[in-house]
């Protein structure tokens, strides 16, 4: 399923941006969680709680699953004001729990739920976000393995460079994957959502290269990057294919 990335071709790429605002959500996460805890991935255990999405009309929020609730919650915290804001919604696994339920129903010979199917697609959160805000701004939905957030940020930065917008809302949300997929679980398999309103600037610099060693970081890229958002000066993240260095104020 995973197509190998030509890391050599990407080796010289770096990404610079500034953070206009940001927000993170995880079960039990304190608002003043220090940067080191994000970098180490030592967040509270999953208590099954759901983030608040009461800002959405009841008819829009009624069927949302946890991944979408998390995405829309942090998107609203980072960009609460109405108005048009181009956005990128990223997720490694998307609505995997919902898709798994649909597949299990099909295997039992049941008719799939049309409503559940409509919310299982990868841009479902982006769609609900656009409807709720009445915002026709351009929107993408990205899934790119454990680097999904990196490519979402690159997408955002490219759009700013093209001059069509001065800011882009980047949202990444993943729930823990369902038990059926545990043999394929990533090192960091915990619910976490991060939203960043990205603008032009040099606050943050990310550089990446092929992960030459077999070292994989305990925290996912979104959790690690939240550490940079929370004030850490430096981030070293090792994923399944890439290693990323992040610097603040470089």
């Amino acid at each position: 399923m995973d197509t190998p990335i030509d890391c050599a071709a990407l080796a010289d790429l770096a990404l610079r941006f500034s953070i206009r605002s940001w927000a993170a959500w995880a079960p039990g996460l304190a608002a003043d969680t220090p940067a080191v805890e994000f970098l180490a991935g030592t967040l509270p255990d999953d208590d099954g709680s759901l983030p608040d999405v009461d800002f959405l009309p009841a008819m829009l929020r009624r069927r949302l699953g946890r991944t979408a609730r998390m995405a829309l919650h942090v998107a609203h915290l980072a960009a609460p004001e109405p108005g048009s804001l181009p956005n990128v919604f990223a997720s490694r696994h998307g609505e995997l729990r919902r898709t798994t339920d649909l597949l299990q129903g099909l295997a039992r010979g049941e008719l799939p739920s049309p409503a559940s199917f409509s919310l299982s697609v990868h841009n479902a959160s982006a769609g609900i976000h656009a409807i709720a805000r009445n915002d026709p701004a351009p929107s993408s939905a990205i899934a790119a393995g454990d680097e999904s957030l990196l490519w979402a940020l690159l997408d955002a930065r490219q759009r700013i460079e093209q001059g069509t917008t001065d800011a882009v809302l980047v949202v990444h949300s993943d729930d823990a994957i369902p038990s059926q997929y545990l043999p394929f679980a990533p090192v960091c398999n915990r619910p976490f959502a991060l939203a960043i309103v990205v603008e032009a600037g040099d606050d943050i610099a990310l550089e990446w290269r092929a992960n030459g060693g077999d070292r994989v970081s305990p925290a996912s890229l979104p959790i690690s990057l939240a550490g940079l958002c929370a004030g850490a000066n430096r981030l070293e993240w090792h994923g399944e294919r890439l290693s990323i260095t992040g610097l603040r104020g470089a």
Partner: peptide, 17 residues
């Protein structure tokens, strides 16, 4: 009641079941 087109499909499936 303010239901939408997805609700119509969902309701059709539920009535069938």
């Amino acid at each position: 009641l303010g239901l939408d087109s997805i609700d119509a499909l969902e309701l059709g499936v539920a009535l069938k079941k």
